[in-house]
Structures are given as structure tokens and as C-alpha cells.
Amino acid sequence: MIFIVYILFSESKNKFYVGFTSNLDERLVRHNQKSKGFTGNVNDWQIVYTEHYPTKELAHKRELRIKSWKSRIKIQELINNKE
């Protein structure tokens, strides 16, 4: 099984969301359903970045590292450098 660290972007919120999953398609559908939580009140989340990891632990560690930056600029640089 492969685990995916992903970054989503919402145009209407003008915000990024960082997470990880083993099923990105299913996870994106859940993010775009109206529900509670950070991503729940809009439904225009789009995948703008992904990284693949062989274990859940490595993916979670990377997710936490990206979240710890608390910097929109660093996240945008990561996305731009991948392209």
C-alpha cells in the first residue's frame, strides 16, 4: 500500500489544506462534501501537490512537518518546485 501526502487548495477560501491518505480520490470526495471541520464548509478543494510514501508513519511524519511550517509562502514554494 502507498500513502500519499497531499496539499489541497480552495479558491473560495483562498487556503491550503495538508493531509495524508491511502486513497486520494475517496479522500477528495469527502473533503468536498459539506460537513464540519476545516474543509467542510466549501466544496471547491483541488489537489495541487502530492508525494508518495511506502509507510503510513513516513507519510504522517511528512504531513506534520509541512503543517509545522505554518507558512503559506513555504507551501507555495514546495508546490512550485515540484512542477
Rank of each mutant, 00 (worst) to 15 (best):
K13W: 03
E51K: 15
E11K: 15
M1C: 08
Y17G: 01
H60K: 12
N32E: 07
Y53E: 05
N23W: 07
Q76W: 04
Y53R: 08
Q46E: 15
H31T: 09
I73M: 06
N23C: 11
K61T: 09
E83M: 10
N14H: 05
T39R: 07
S10R: 04
R72L: 05
T55L: 09
H60F: 10
H52I: 11
T39K: 10
K74T: 02
H31K: 08
A59S: 02
N41E: 06
V29A: 11
I79L: 05
I66Q: 02
E26M: 12
S35Y: 00
Q33C: 06
M1E: 12
K82F: 08
G37Y: 09
F9R: 14
K13H: 04
Q33F: 04
Q33A: 10
T50V: 15
R30S: 13
K70M: 04
I4D: 01
F38R: 14
E51F: 10
N14W: 02
E77F: 11
E11W: 06
K74R: 11
N41W: 08
H31C: 13
A59C: 03
R27Q: 13
K70A: 09
I66C: 02
G40Y: 04
V18K: 10
I75W: 02
E63F: 03
G19W: 03
Q46T: 15
I2P: 01
K34H: 12
R72G: 07
A59P: 00
N43C: 13
Y53M: 07
Y53I: 05
T50Q: 14
K70S: 06
L64Y: 00
K15C: 05
Q76N: 11
K36D: 13
L28G: 03
H52G: 05
M1G: 14
S22Q: 14
S10F: 02
Q46K: 15
E57N: 13
F20N: 04
F3S: 04
V5Q: 00
K13C: 11
K15E: 12
I2H: 09
Y17T: 00
T21Y: 08
P54E: 14
Q76G: 06
Q33M: 13
V48C: 06
E51Y: 09
I4T: 15
K74I: 05
N43H: 07
L58N: 03
Y6C: 05
V5C: 00
F16K: 05
V42L: 12
S35W: 00
K56E: 10
L78E: 02
W45L: 05
K56A: 07
T39M: 08
S71P: 01
Y17I: 02
K67M: 04
N43W: 01
F9N: 11
V48T: 07
E77L: 15
I47T: 14
I7W: 01
K15P: 01
